[in-house]
Computed example of a mutant assay.
Amino acid sequence: MNPDTLRDRLRFVLSKRESLLQLLEQPDLGTLRIDVNQALEELDELLAEVQRTFPDLES
């Protein structure tokens, strides 16, 4: 995979992170809040790992 494709895919994933944050603000989320929090944590870990693996890759 070339760096431009990787950048595009990372931007796409980051845009979904914003959707999760907006979902988390919903007052009637109930127990789904746990799953949304977990998804955010795992996404943040994935992005941190990508940054460690490809330090020269800017999103």
Rank of each mutant, 00 (worst) to 15 (best):
V13T: 13
F12D: 15
A39C: 10
R11N: 15
L20Q: 05
L14G: 13
P3R: 14
P27H: 04
D8G: 10
L47Y: 05
E49G: 07
G30Y: 02
L20A: 04
Q38R: 14
L23R: 03
K16N: 15
D44Q: 06
E25Q: 07
I34L: 09
L10N: 03
L10R: 10
M1K: 14
P27K: 02
V36Q: 06
D28L: 09
G30F: 00
L24V: 10
A48I: 11
N2R: 01
L47G: 05
V13I: 15
Q51N: 09
P3E: 12
F12V: 13
N2E: 03
D35F: 09
L21A: 11
A39G: 03
L47N: 08
D44P: 02
S15A: 14
L40E: 01
P27I: 00
L57H: 04
L57V: 03
L6T: 07
A48C: 01
S59M: 08
I34V: 12
A48E: 13
F54H: 11
A48R: 14
E18A: 13
E42Y: 11
Q22M: 12
E49P: 02
P55H: 04
E25S: 08
R7Y: 04
R7M: 07
L10S: 06
S59N: 05
N37T: 03
L23N: 04
E42N: 11
Q22W: 07
L14F: 12
S59W: 01
R11Y: 12
T31Y: 11
N2D: 05
V36L: 00
K16A: 15
D44G: 01
R33S: 07
S15C: 06
V13Q: 13
R9H: 14
D44K: 00
E41T: 09
T5N: 12
R9C: 12
N2S: 01
V50P: 03
L24F: 12
S19I: 13
D56C: 08
R7Q: 01
E49A: 09
E45F: 08
L20Y: 00
L47D: 07
Q26C: 10
E25N: 08
P55K: 09
L40I: 01
I34K: 12
I34R: 11
L24P: 10
E25M: 04
F54N: 03
Q51W: 06
P27V: 03
L57M: 00
M1T: 13
N2V: 07
V50M: 03
L46Y: 07
P27S: 04
D4L: 14
R52E: 06
E42C: 06
Q22C: 10
E18R: 13
K16S: 14
P3H: 09
L40D: 10
D56G: 06
E42A: 05
P55V: 06
L40V: 08
L14P: 11
T53L: 02
A39H: 01
R17L: 05
I34T: 11
Q51E: 12
L43Q: 09
R17G: 05
D35S: 12
R9T: 11
N2Q: 07
L6D: 02
